[in-house]
């Protein structure tokens, strides 16, 4: 995937660019708002990682507003030291797709960017999700694995749906908390781990192979072993 990183801090930018390249992405980097806007407007990207505060008179918010006014729908993730709730709301209102506060773990950034590019492709309404022998019918709200029906609580269903929609991608605990529970704060307890482990009891334990995998220092991933 082609990803544009607009970030003025040399260390942060170098770290992000290196990490993204290691994960197999093609990365362009701009260290000020003017170049960032020029690149974003003139070349196609699958995602843009945008710092809120940039030198050169054009800040991240302005870049995004300009892009959106040109009907450019490229997924944008804000990376910002401005972590207050209002800042986040402002960034999302301006058309941002996600918001990550500095400092951040690279795994979190990577997971979120990859989730964004998936969302950016716009699959249209889906009624059925399939990963390996696991099938989810979104209309009848039923789940089967290897033809066997699995009974899930409503929240477990949502959790599995989120994992299946991001199959093959790392999903962090914060992403699950935001995406499944719509909570925008970090609970001190490992609530997500408990819920995932309960889901595992139902989805993985009765079967020979596991689909829900723990990714160390990052989160979870739903995938078949062959993937």
């Amino acid at each position: 995937m082609r990803i544009l990183v607009v970030e003025d801090d040399k260390d942060v930018a170098g770290f992000v660019v290196k990490g993204l390249r290691e994960s197999g992405h093609v990365v362009e980097h701009a260290d000020n708002g003017r170049d960032g806007l020029f690149l974003a407007a003139s070349e196609p990207f699958d995602a843009i990682i945008l710092d809120r505060m940039l030198p050169g008179g054009i800040d991240g918010l302005r870049i995004l507003e300009t892009l959106r006014s040109q009907r450019n729908t490229v997924p944008v993730l804000f990376l910002s030291a401005l972590g207050q709730v209002d800042d986040r709301v402002l960034g999302l209102k301006a058309g941002g797709d996600d918001y990550l506060t500095k400092p951040f773990a690279f795994a979190e950034l990577l997971a979120r960017v990859e989730a964004l590019t998936r969302r950016g492709k716009g699959e249209g309404p889906v009624t059925k999700l399939t990963v390996g022998d696991l099938e989810m019918d979104l209309l009848s709200r039923s789940v089967r694995r290897a033809g066997q029906k699995i009974d899930l609580q409503p929240r477990e269903f949502l959790l599995l749906e989120y994992l299946m929609r991001h199959a093959g991608q790392v999903v962090t605990r914060t992403m699950l908390l935001e995406g499944v529970w719509d909570y925008h704060f970090d609970p001190q307890t490992n609530v997500i781990d408990v819920h995932v482990s309960r889901l595992r009891q139902k989805v993985d334990k009765p079967f020979s192979s596991a689909l829900i995998h723990t990714v160390r220092n990052a989160g979870y991933m739903l995938r078949t072993d062959g993937q």
């Binding site: 929240r155 529970w181 909570y183 609530v191």
Partner: peptide, 13 residues
């Protein structure tokens, strides 16, 4: 009830 749902699993554990 959402909070109880979220923390219920932890409590049960």
């Amino acid at each position: 009830s959402d909070l109880v749902d979220l923390y219920g699993a932890v409590a049960e554990e």
